[in-house]
């Protein structure tokens, strides 16, 4: 238990700051870009300028988001594990207690990964829509299939 806490603390101290720094840079770029620069570009010249601005923002946003992904993927499993154990402990008196911990962990893991995937897609959507609605549609299909796969793999098939 003590080793696990120490490992989690090591991960938080080493990965969380860089993840937060890169993620907050990406979010700030997204906020200024989607809420100010793209509407301004559309009001100046509605056909080509928003695509150019959108491309610049997309590259910068993707760069910082990709730098935060490593930390995010390292942080999520131990945090999910901790959360699942806490929930399982609370439900200890339940009749199906011997399955609760295992099921809860799988369920929370699937939920967190699906939510992250949907959140990332929602962040990309306004930028992708500017460049091509068709590409946005294709990526939406991929995201839906991916979420279904995660849910099937973590909850139904195991």
């Amino acid at each position: 238990m003590r080793d696990r806490e120490a490992a989690l603390r090591f991960i938080i101290e080493n990965y969380l700051p860089d993840m937060l720094i890169n993620l907050s840079t990406a979010i700030l770029i997204w906020l200024f870009g989607v809420l100010f620069f793209i509407p301004t570009a559309s009001s100046i010249e509605p056909s080509n300028l928003p695509i150019l601005v959108g491309l610049i923002l997309l590259v910068a946003f993707t760069f910082f988001l990709s730098r935060s992904i490593k930390g995010l993927l390292t942080l999520i499993p131990p945090l999910v594990d901790r959360l699942a154990k806490r929930i399982a402990q609370e439900n200890r008196n339940d009749r199906s207690a011997r399955f609760t911990g295992w099921r809860t962990e799988k369920f929370i893991k699937a939920l967190v990964y699906s939510a992250l995937l949907v959140a990332f897609y929602l962040l990309y959507m306004p930028l992708l829509n500017l460049i091509s609605v068709q590409i946005n549609g294709l990526i939406l299909i991929i995201v839906i299939l991916w979420v279904l796969w995660i849910l099937l793999k973590e909850i139904v098939l195991t």
């Binding site: 620069f37 570009a41 100046i44 010249e45 601005v53 923002l57």
Partner: peptide
């Protein structure tokens, strides 16, 4: 347009 791109 050019100024906006520089600002972005």
């Amino acid at each position: 347009g050019v100024v906006l791109l520089i600002i972005v």
